[in-house]
Design a protein around this nucleic acid. Structure first.
Ligand code: NAD
Ligand code: NAD
Lengths: 211, 211
DNA sequence: AAAAAGTCGTGATGTTTTTCACAAATTAAT
DNA sequence: ATTAATTTGTGAAAAACATCACGACTTTTT
């Protein structure tokens, strides 16, 4: 659908722009330049202008961008007018933290169901999100298309396969396992240990100049 | 230090390679090809060979790579022979999940101290990590150079400034705030809401072909 | 011993992403 | 009105990254 020509790097920044535009709007700001936005989101101003330009001419020369207009534009581009329902598998330490966090206000995303293999957790709820047994995935998942995966790494592959069979096509994978999925399924890996370790590596091997 | 010429994209993959090599080694595997590794970590085999080649000729034509040798090489490249101590600021939902997770075995990283503003948490410990009051940062932070930041977004900027003044030069920032730091400080943002939202965006706008 | 199969390292090429730099347009100041 | 200051949108260039494809070498098979 839409424009298949929006670069992936651009697409990844859209939610970021959206959030800052929301902030600006709430602060009552009417206009904003790519330079200001650049300072706020730490993305080069030329990159921001380029990003926006893929969607047409959203700004005005000499003026900048109208906050309200831009916000509205991105709201619909990001489908923020409707709630996206997602499920979470693995209500452990990390999973619980996500369940307690609301993605609704800023992202219009709601975790509506959680699943776990631990029967002592099943039947309870965390911040209003009911926890089902993972064996009930088939009956309970319904038409949810996006899943947050926070199970132990050893379970990841097996669960992922089940999810795919149930029609899931997006997985946000927090396990260290690199799961194998058919090409029509999109997996984003967030590998916290790798992030931490690579930060440490950069610090030791890429000394940054002082000022 | 070392080679300033290792591409950032390569550097980010090193911890991933390291983890899989560890797995292979524990499984008793003696050799591995870039093709096998590629299937495991989902990175093109040419990319893997290119990545490795920045460090010299680590493999042998017709044979592949010796697991133990490669593992040893990356262990020292990633400074895995010594424990890296990090601190965590904000022992809330997300912070607690991190405190309960051990980065020691696979990454040789240990969270040794946590800080929070909530005095009901101060003095306790989570899985052996003591929680101090954030006002004691100066006395307690000592020579810790890397910090995981899991405070509310509104606090991020102020805390970050304090951290920088205390000599921190690496921040893993989980808050949605894009913090401003001097150029000698490295910040890696992990923006969970953005990750989730961009996954949703990709699914709606980049339909993947079925097989 | 020779042939076949496997695999690395890398020059060359292709792709994606970022950045520069400036004409064109608008706004603000004098 | 005129001039100065802003700021966009984008062609062009640069930088970063990924992939192809093959010679060289090793291992395995026959
Ligand atoms: N917590 C962290 O800071 C952290 C850091 C890096 C990586 N991770 C990764 O994130 C994942 C989750 O970590 P965690 O700390 O929350 O672990 P955890 O053990 O606290 O939680 C895992 C949860 O999954 C449930 N579970 C186990 N098997 C299941 C199955 N087959 N189906 C459904 N649920 C099942 C368990 O009952 C548990 O509630 C792990 O893969 C871990 O490696 C976590
Ligand atoms: N939990 C999630 O799933 C999630 C998702 C996306 C983003 N985030 C971001 O991660 C951060 C942490 O989220 P959370 O859910 O753990 O929040 P939380 O409210 O549970 O935890 C924040 C902790 O920081 C402490 N704190 C407050 N002010 C402080 C200060 N000045 N110094 C030190 N500690 C202070 C609080 O006492 C609390 O313990 C937030 O910025 C949030 O936006 C969290």
């Amino acid at each position: 659908m839409d424009q298949n020509k929006i670069p992936q790097a651009t697409a990844k920044r859209l939610p970021l722009y959206y959030r800052f535009l929301n902030n600006l709007n709430q602060q009552g700001k009417r206009r904003v330049s790519s330079k200001e936005l650049s300072e706020a989101v730490k993305v080069d101003s030329a990159t921001i202008r380029r990003d926006f330009s893929y969607f047409g001419a959203l700004g005005k020369k000499g003026y900048g961008y109208n906050v309200e207009y831009l916000l509205g534009f991105f709201r619909s581009t990001l489908d923020q007018h409707e709630v996206t329902e997602v499920a979470l598998i693995g209500a452990g330490n990390l999973g619980t933290a996500f369940l307690k966090y609301s993605f609704l206000k800023n992202n219009n995303i709601r975790i509506t169901k959680a699943f776990d293999a631990d029967s002592s957790k099943v039947g309870k709820d965390i911040d209003g999100v009911p926890i089902f047994h993972v064996s009930d995935l088939e009956e309970e998942l319904e038409n949810i298309r996006v899943v947050i995966l926070t199970v132990p790494a050893s379970e990841a592959e097996e669960i992922a396969e089940k999810l795919v069979n149930l029609g899931v096509n997006g997985i946000l994978n927090f396990t260290p396992a690199r799961i194998t999925v058919p090409s029509h399924v999109r997996v984003h890996h967030i590998d916290l240990a790798v992030e931490l370790q690579s930060l440490v590596y950069f610090l030791k091997h890429y000394p940054l100049e002082k000022e």
